[in-house]
Design a protein around this nucleic acid. Structure first.
Lengths: 153, 153
DNA sequence: ATTGACCTTAGAGTTAGCTCTAAGCTTATA
DNA sequence: TATAAGCTTAGAGCTAACTCTAAGGTCAAT
């Protein structure tokens, strides 16, 4: 069961394969996401193919927007699929989607506001005494938008 | 020019008016965004109407997505409009819009991925051995998407 | 034997924007 | 006058996900 060190990767090689820095790989290890299956006598990490696939999984999940905590959960499902249901997986995914949708809504509102501001302003070289962007920000964006803000008086 | 302390606000009163905590107001002051025009002998901050309007401006800009650094720039325009042009204002606004659009694109890509994942999975109580979400994450999301990632072998 | 590249660890630093604490005054109320 | 609420400051802590540093051990090549 113990094949020398052939066909295993050192951390810098894993780094190259995955595009994650060695620092980041150690960071993920410290946070329980990944591990080197083997260590040399001197303590050097050696990664198997299976380790590489796990790291790729982490990277893909990361690109999809999952937090490291989410990924921890996904990984524990991954290593024991029999003890987990598809619903366990969709729960995590659904929760993430809700977060993403919430952020999206917030950013879309900002986008709309910024576009309106830009439309309203000439953007020219004249001085800003009557700049409509400044006026709008001074007026609280025309007043009938925000929820909790009390009006000035 | 110095009217006692009538019609000025203490920090907790400004906090109530604006919905920003006293902590946050002091934080903004430390970062050069706002200031109390007056202090009592004991060092208590007292805010004028003009101070209140400035804080409202900051809050509105914050809600619009501007960073505190952006707001610092906007405020320095606000106090000396003659020395700044509308273009100065639109430059800041445009830059912010670009940032927001970039984030938006990233989040929309995540949203799409998450929706696809959810569509592909039954989400039921059966065990996760053939969960299509896990498979997709294992396969790097079907392979033809990411830019810098090298394939496994 | 000696470079130099690579590896190890613990732990500090970064970013942004708060949020909170501690220790000690001040002010208002009873 | 005493107590509680509110104010002051400097500075630490929080969040997330890295990113980097320091001090030292290892390894391959000269």
């Amino acid at each position: 069961m113990d094949f020398g060190v052939e066909n295993m990767l050192k951390i810098s090689e894993l780094s190259q394969q995955t595009g994650l820095s060695a620092h980041t790989l150690r960071y993920y290890e410290k946070h329980g996401l990944i591990n080197a299956s083997n260590r040399s006598e001197a303590g050097y990490r050696f990664y198997t193919d299976s380790d590489v696939r796990r790291v790729q999984f982490v990277k893909t999940a990361r690109n999809t927007g999952f937090s490291l905590a989410d990924i921890g959960q996904l990984l524990s499902i991954r290593v024991d699929k029999l003890s987990h249901s598809c619903q366990d997986v969709t729960d995590i995914t659904q929760k993430k989607l809700l977060e993403v949708n919430a952020k999206l809504a917030e950013l879309q509102s900002m986008q709309q506001t910024l576009e309106l501001l830009l439309e309203s302003c000439c953007g020219g070289p004249e001085n800003a005494t009557h700049c409509s962007i400044m006026e709008a920000l001074d007026a609280g964006l025309s007043r009938e938008d925000k929820n909790e803000a009390r009006l000035i008086k």
